[in-house]
Nucleic acid binder design. Structure first.
Length: 462
RNA sequence: GCCGCUAUCGUCUAGGGGUUAGGACGCCGGAUUCUCAGUCCGGAAACCGGGGUUCGAAUCCCCGUAGCGGUACCA
């Protein structure tokens, strides 16, 4: 489908450095929301001019993360490296028109120059006679560059403090701020939504655009996302990448919802919003000004909301995919009793494993529960269940429910031993559902095993 | 150092000259006479500091302070 002539054209332009960081993911999401809201085009451009880190693997990581998040882009993926000819042409043009010049000075030269001229004074070079050296864009000493930002209003950068910055290396290869400006113009990008860390690049890119006589897009700089320590979110910290979130069992829908809220919120403070609501309500000018801290607790809560809201079919499919198992009947039955309990896909298996494997070994649970009247309760439960015809949850409940009163025990004293007997631990789905799902034979057998274990333990102690 | 951005509960945020400063997560307590989770109810919890302007400032202005970003012949 053609992306030309759409009302609003935005782009996500990551450099492929590995897994997609959640900051990048949010930037992608904001661009996507803005595009879909305006029925515009969401373009994807890979900034791969640095051959060092731009490996095919790293590019694939970005694509994979965007696909998982469901952020579909319009048209083909654009690789910045493929427009190098255009970048070089732009540099040549600027030099020819005297707006840029070759300069052989080194970083040390620049430092020296500033020591003489003042630290707040941008470097001004001397054009080399022979066309040798890197290419620098000429910057006026007077005036200022005004960036009109949708989030912050007008931001003023004094020209005096900006270097004649390098737009191409001595070998002629174009640099980032030149390439971005040229590409944004070529792709007819109208709105650039990106992280705060690009604010000082924006003044440079605007200068290139202006020198080239190209239209300057609108900008919206979103504040950076920080870790719990208030610093820049590091890869170390929990699941800082989209892939990490996925592997921890978070749902793409929940991640999208949560990320949208990190730095933006609708007027009425609504928290749970599906994609369509997000699209309907998102406006880039409503992005907040101050940086946000990634809070996994809130993501977990939100994820739980989405987990519980899924249809049973979707739930089974998600769990099966996550566990890399077949969505067969046993798994369907297991999911049915676990859906209300888990906050993430990663928490599902521990709740249902007892249906597929022997009970786990949890000494603490045994110590706490398998004492006192536990054998009495287990005997009674065994008896009530062993002869039961229909073994559905309702009839299991009917069989077990009179026991506490009959034995003169609290409900917990009866049910917890049964739970530990069949699962090995104290945490599981509802006891009646769990017993029913396990089946009569296996339940009775596990109760017998537990009884035997208690007996032999007491024998040892005596 | 220089240039820039930001500042409301622990966290995400609403509000924007006169409000009991609202909501959400988390936390604490209670209920749901099976654990955990969920759900419901209740609670504690915030306007960085100092000066202005004003009858009145969390809100507007200035100055500090703190945090963050940038400062490459990286992207």
């Amino acid at each position: 489908m053609s992306t030309a002539g759409r009302d609003l054209r935005v782009r996500f332009a990551p450099s492929p450095t590995g897994e997609l960081h959640i900051g990048g993911a949010r930037t992608a999401l904001y661009n996507w929301l803005a595009a879909r809201h305006a029925d515009g085009a969401f373009l994807l451009r890979i900034e791969d001019t640095d051959a060092e880190r731009s490996t095919p693997e790293n590019v694939a990581q970005i694509i994979e993360a965007l696909e998982w998040l469901g952020l579909d882009w319009d048209g083909d993926v654009v690789f910045q490296s493929e427009s190098e000819a255009a970048h070089r042409e732009a540099v040549r043009d600027l030099v020819e028109r005297g707006l840029a010049y070759h300069d052989t000075s080194t970083a040390d030269d620049v430092r020296e120059w500033k020591e003489k001229e003042g630290a707040d004074r941008g470097y001004r070079g001397t054009p080399s006679e022979d066309g040798e050296g890197a290419v620098r864009l000429r910057v006026d000493d007077q005036g200022e560059e005004v960036v009109r930002d949708l989030v912050r209003g007008e931001i003023r950068f004094p020209n005096r403090s900006l270097d004649d910055f390098v737009i191409a290396r001595a070998d002629g290869s174009p640099l980032y701020n030149l390439a971005v400006a040229v590409d944004d113009a070529a792709m007819e990008v109208d709105l650039v939504i990106r992280g705060d860390d690009h604010l000082s690049n924006t003044q440079k890119q605007q200068k290139v655009l202006e020198a080239l006589g190209a239209k300057v897009p609108e900008y919206a700089h979103a504040p950076l996302i920080h870790g719990t320590d208030g610093k820049k979110l590091s890869k170390r910290e929990g699941a800082a990448s989209v892939q990490g979130l996925r592997d921890d069992g978070y749902l793409a829908d929940a991640v999208v919802n949560y990320l949208a809220l990190l730095g933006w919120g609708p007027e009425d403070d609504e928290t749970v919003m599906d994609r369509q609501e997000l699209i309907d309500r998102f406006r880039p000018e409503e992005i907040g000004k101050s940086s946000a801290v990634f809070d996994e607790k809130k993501l977990r809560w939100l994820n739980g909301r989405y987990m519980r809201a899924m249809t049973p079919e979707a739930y089974v499919e998600a769990v099966a995919t996550f566990l890399d198992r077949e969505p067969d009947q046993p798994l369907v039955d297991a999911c049915a009793i676990a859906q209300e309990k888990a906050q993430t896909l990663g928490e599902v298996w521990p709740l249902i494993a007892f249906l597929f494997e022997p009970p786990v070994d949890d000494p603490k649970a045994w110590r706490k529960v398998m004492k006192g009247d536990a054998p009495t309760a287990l005997e009674a439960a065994r008896e009530a269940l062993a002869g039961l015809g229909d073994f559905g949850p309702e009839s299991v409940e009917k069989a077990l429910e009179p026991l506490p009163e009959r034995l003169g025990l609290s409900a917990g004293k009866v049910y917890q031993p049964v739970r530990v007997a069949i699962t090995g631990t104290t945490v599981s789905p509802g006891i009646f559902e769990s017993v029913a799902a396990l089946g009569r034979e296996e339940t009775v057998s596990r109760i017998d095993d537990a009884l035997g274990r208690i007996a032999s333990r007491e024998g040892e102690e005596a």
